[in-house]
Design a protein around this nucleic acid. Structure first.
Length: 780
RNA sequence: GGGGCCGUGGUCUAGCGGUAUGACGCCGCCCUCACACGGCGGAGGUCGUGGGUUCGAAUCCCACCGGCCCCA
């Protein structure tokens, strides 16, 4: 006697990703993720990384990164916090200028400053809208309505305010010292902005005459710096050169007499073991000049050409000068040999061209004297995962100079200073407003120092990290909403990639500590990098970048998000391949079909549970516990893999199969249908909640179709409230079912055909369900 | 030169003191009333190498090798 067939409430046999667009619209109409700053709930502020629109397509690894940050927001929300998930875009600095120069073939200096700025701004708008599209389409529950930009007058005013504050407190100072200079960008760059490249370089072995008699061979990759050579060193342990100290050498071409010094910085195995010290071939030259008290010679100008002091090389570029001097040395018979070596060369990370070290007059932000305090402050922050804490500690410990913060560029926050034309003193405006000294007249009449009335506006700008390093202050209302700031700062979590620990994380800690006297975050969440299929970094030059947009359109956001969660364990690098994204889609289909199956049954409010029901609820409790352990440390890999395993390998394969006959009220089994219906819905509801932060679309769709008019995203994450003791049967159940399937297979029986098997004593509790499930006949 | 992470069947991965988990791929059978983006079954690994600790190690310790990333 068959009961009437039930009608599933979910009709289609698979999840349609285009439904996501309707759901998105609904979320926006409902303003579902609105942040209420006055809420009594505990505030949870996320210092979302404002991404930098520096090119296209936007990196799929970045899209993955932001969806994971969204999972943090959703998790916190479902844990009962009032979540502020701001969306910001970082729009200051060299990257966009270089993008414009490259893509539009315009030199920064070839246009009036205001025109160049306008083009940068328009370009940023285009790039930004692409990023915002990806974020929105990926289902980010952020505050898109009020998205902020680091180049807005409001943001720049705050940056300038902090500059004025720190300048007055003498934490910002002006100094002329050897600095990394990129000719291509035309500006000083910080250590944090330098990369190293292995490039083939000529190591030139040159004969230097000694004063008196004899000669030595000096090996150098920078012969064009001969004119700045102020000393010669060799290693004191190098037997070949004992007796050289106290001698002096004559620099070829320039004829200058320089001392020869035994110093451990010389590596006996490099070149001839004798090295010339010039201002400035590299960092160690800077250090030795300071240590030995040598007087620097400036050979290279800011245009990358040789200066007066270079004598016969004057006016040449560095490259030309190198060739010229080699020729000159050859003419004098001073070149012993030239060796082609692979050499590490510091390059600018923006332009990828070699940087030079030249003394420049720049503004610096004090950091060296704060190292201990910063280490102390960082120890108060929780790191997820803990092992990435070391990246920050190592960087703080390796700091060698204060942070040069001024840049000779256009598209950035202006340094808010006017210089008095009569006494030269810097005059700073009142904090709180946005100033552009290069085009505006000063907001004051007289020089504070001499009373002069003529001013020259500062033309330099600030390093872009000066802006982005105050994002936690910006989002928490610093100086703009003191009441909110007191509740909101330090912010709850800083999520970011491990590649910008030395820049964004470090600079934020430094700046916020200086300004607010406290570390900026309670927790730091550091993710690994998205690499290509072979485990190598994605980059345009390698040609292995993947555009996230077609992936999102083809598979949908939930598939992409589920893939993100199950692919990347917290803090570890992960590989990106379309094939693996596609396979994540299978789980989404599976989930959909399970929900579709369950959707046909009524939802009893209570039921008398059978052993099978109690068993699957035991497993559910364990699943919730394990998943919550992952959620509490924002490691979505844990819930994603655990839920997937439960849903597929426990719930679908075993529980649903065990209860199918009674749930469908087929055959003689109908007494316990209600218990099956009740349990099926209970499991589904809880799995949907567990998955909601990871796959917000499909879970909300199913939730609203089956369970509530309100969104699942207003629910709390589940609590493991069921007795776990029945999980002791799991292994035996799985094994028994498997063995029956195998026997049927071997006997060539269809799964519905009867079979004679013995149910193990251990599983006698489940006898009723197992008998009908496998159509077991006979007894034992 | 320094640091971090990683080395588990063809590929990727779980496990982190009791001789191995799952996925993808592969082979075979099955359109079984939620799902063929499915189900069932199968082949395939001495867990990078060497040593040590232990009754017992992929799991702890040491050394080495290899890969990736970061820094100097």
């Amino acid at each position: 006697m068959d009961a009437p067939a039930f009608e599933p409430k979910l009709k289609e046999t698979r999840w349609d990703p285009s439904l996501e667009l309707e759901i998105l619209k609904k979320w926006e109409e409902e303003d579902l993720y609105r942040f209420d700053g006055k809420s009594r709930k505990r505030l949870f502020l996320i210092d979302t990384p404002p991404p930098y629109p520096s090119g296209r397509p936007w990196h799929i690894g970045a899209a993955a990164h932001y969806t994971q940050i969204d999972m943090i927001a959703r998790t916190a929300r479902m844990m009962g916090h009032e979540v502020y998930f701001p969306i910001g875009i970082d729009r200051n600095g060299i990257p966009v200028e270089r993008y414009v120069e490259r893509e539009k073939k315009i030199r920064l200096t070839a246009l009036p400053r205001s025109d160049f700025i306008r083009i940068c701004s328009e370009t940023l708008d285009e790039l930004e809208s692409e990023m915002l599209w990806v974020m929105r389409r990926a289902g980010l529950s952020g505050d898109f309505k009020n998205h902020y930009r680091t180049d807005s007058p409001e943001y720049r005013a705050l940056t300038q305010t902090t500059f004025i504050d720190l300048f007055k407190r003498e934490l910002i100072y002006r100094s002329s010292r050897p600095n990394n200079f990129c000719y291509d960008c035309g500006t000083t760059v910080a250590d944090a902005e330098i990369d190293y490249a292995e490039l083939p370089t000529d190591l030139v072995y040159m004969v230097f005459d000694l004063v008196g008699e004899g000669s030595i061979v000096v090996a150098s990759t920078r012969p064009e710096l001969l004119g700045a050579c102020k000393a010669i060193i060799y290693n004191p342990a190098d037997d070949r050169y004992q007796g050289l100290e106290k001698r002096r050498a004559l620099v070829p071409v320039y004829g200058r007499e320089v001392p020869i010094i035994a110093h451990p910085a010389a590596r006996p195995d490099f070149g001839s073991g004798i090295v010339m010290i010039c201002s400035y071939g590299d960092k160690s030259d800077v250090q030795l000049f300071r240590e030995l008290g040598l007087e620097e010679v400036i050979l290279i100008g800011t245009d990358g050409r040789m200066l007066e002091a270079a004598g016969p090389l004057r006016g040449l570029t560095v490259e030309e000068a190198r060739q010229r001097i080699i020729d000159m040395l050859k003419d004098e018979g001073r070149v012993v040999k030239i060796e082609r070596i692979i050499h590490q060369i510091p390059i600018c990370e923006r332009s990828n061209t070699p940087i030079e070290i030249i003394p420049m007059d720049e503004y610096y932000l004090t950091q060296l004297s704060l190292k201990e305090e910063l280490l102390e402050a960082s120890s108060k922050m929780t790191f997820y995962p803990e092992f990435h804490r070391q990246l920050l500690i190592d960087w703080i410990n390796s700091l060698k100079i204060d942070w040069p913060i001024s840049r000779r560029r256009y598209y950035a926050t202006e340094i808010p200073i006017w210089y008095c034309k009569s006494c030269g003193q810097p005059n700073l405006p009142q904090p709180g407003k946005y100033y552009r000294p290069w085009m505006e007249s000063p907001p004051f009449e007289k020089c504070y120092n001499c009373g002069g009335t003529e001013f020259q506006g500062e033309e330099r700008t600030l390093d872009t990290w000066v802006d982005s390093s105050i994002s936690p202050l910006f989002i928490s209302g610093y100086l703009r909403d003191e009441k909110f700031f007191r509740r909101a700062y330090p912010v709850s979590v800083r999520p970011q990639g491990k590649d910008i620990v030395r820049t964004w994380l470090y600079y934020t800690l430094l700046r916020c500590y200086q300004l607010a006297g406290k570390p900026p975050f309670r927790a730091v969440w550091i993710s690994g990098m998205g690499l290509d299929e072979k485990g190598e970094k994605m980059s345009k030059s390698r040609g292995n970048v993947i555009d996230p947009r077609p992936i999102l359109e083809k598979y949908g956001a939930d598939v992409f998000r589920f893939w993100c969660a199950q692919e990347a364990s917290l803090g570890y690098d992960f590989r990106i391949s379309e094939q693996r994204i596609a396979s994540a889609g299978k789980f989404i289909t599976k989930l959909w079909n399970i929900a579709r199956y369950v959707s046909q049954f009524p939802q009893p409010s209570r039921a008398r549970l059978t052993p099978a029901d109690r068993w699957v609820l035991s497993e559910l409790s364990i699943l919730i516990e394990e998943s919550m352990r992952g959620y509490r440390e924002f490691n979505f890999f844990v819930p994603a893999t655990r839920v997937r395993n439960f849903v597929w390998n426990i719930f679908a394969n075993h529980y649903i199969e065990m209860t199918k006959i009674r749930a469908l009220r087929r055959g003689s089994q109908k007494g316990n249908a209600e218990a099956a219906w009740y349990t099926l819905h209970l499991i589904l509801k809880n799995c949907l909640k567990l998955l909601a932060p990871i796959t917000p679309f499909i879970t909300d769709y199913i939730w609203r179709t089956l369970y509530s008019e309100k969104s699942i995203h207003l629910e709390r994450l589940p609590i493991p409230r069921w007795d776990k003791s029945f999980s002791k049967y799991t292994e035996a159940l799985v094994e028994f079912n498997s063995s029956v399937w195998k026997q049927k297979k071997e006997k060539n029986l269809s799964l519905r055909e009867p079979i004679e098997v013995t149910i193990p004593e251990q599983l006698s509790l489940f006898k009723e369900d197992l008998m009908v499930m496998h159509n077991i006949v006979g007894t034992s």
